[in-house]
Simulated scan of single mutants.
Amino acid sequence: MSTPYELVSQHVAALLQEAASAAIPPETVAGTLITEAVRIMKQHRKADDIRSELMFVIDNLEDRDYEFMRP
């Protein structure tokens, strides 16, 4: 059984291949995926919840070395 991440990842990989063959840049696909994800989330979650999740992603855009996570 696939995890949600594995399922979505497989479809995104196929989407990126199809977009490349249509000369659609990956960043355009990514922006469209964000828009679609928010549309889906709005059907099931409150705006504040969506905002919090998006802010978490934004706050963690940079790769960081978290010392507390080291063995």
Rank of each mutant, 00 (worst) to 15 (best):
M1V: 06
S2I: 04
T3N: 05
P4M: 10
P4Y: 12
Y5W: 11
Y5V: 14
Y5D: 09
E6I: 12
V8S: 07
V8K: 08
V8T: 09
Q10R: 15
H11F: 02
H11E: 15
V12H: 09
A13H: 13
A13L: 07
A14K: 11
A14R: 11
L16S: 03
Q17A: 11
Q17Y: 05
E18V: 02
E18A: 12
E18K: 15
A19Q: 12
A19M: 01
A20T: 08
S21M: 12
A22R: 15
A23N: 15
A23G: 07
I24T: 07
I24W: 00
I24P: 10
I24H: 02
P25G: 00
P25F: 01
P26H: 08
P26Y: 05
P26S: 08
E27W: 07
E27K: 11
T28I: 13
A30P: 03
G31K: 15
G31Y: 03
T32H: 03
T32V: 12
T32Y: 05
T32E: 06
I34Q: 13
I34F: 07
I34M: 15
T35M: 04
T35P: 03
E36H: 14
A37D: 01
A37P: 04
V38T: 05
V38Y: 01
V38Q: 14
V38R: 09
R39G: 00
R39K: 10
R39E: 00
I40G: 00
M41H: 04
M41T: 02
K42D: 00
K42P: 00
K42G: 00
Q43V: 06
R45W: 02
K46I: 01
A47I: 04
D48E: 14
D48K: 13
I50N: 01
I50H: 00
R51L: 02
S52E: 11
S52D: 15
E53M: 01
E53K: 00
E53V: 02
L54T: 00
L54E: 02
L54D: 06
M55D: 11
M55Q: 14
M55F: 10
M55K: 15
F56A: 14
V57P: 03
V57F: 07
I58M: 10
I58F: 11
I58K: 10
I58G: 03
I58S: 08
D59F: 03
N60W: 02
N60S: 15
N60L: 00
L61I: 12
L61A: 09
E62S: 11
D63C: 08
D63M: 07
D63N: 10
D63V: 11
R64H: 12
R64P: 00
D65Q: 12
D65V: 05
Y66E: 12
F68V: 15
M69H: 04
M69P: 03
R70I: 06
R70H: 09
P71G: 10
P71R: 11
P71F: 07
P71S: 14
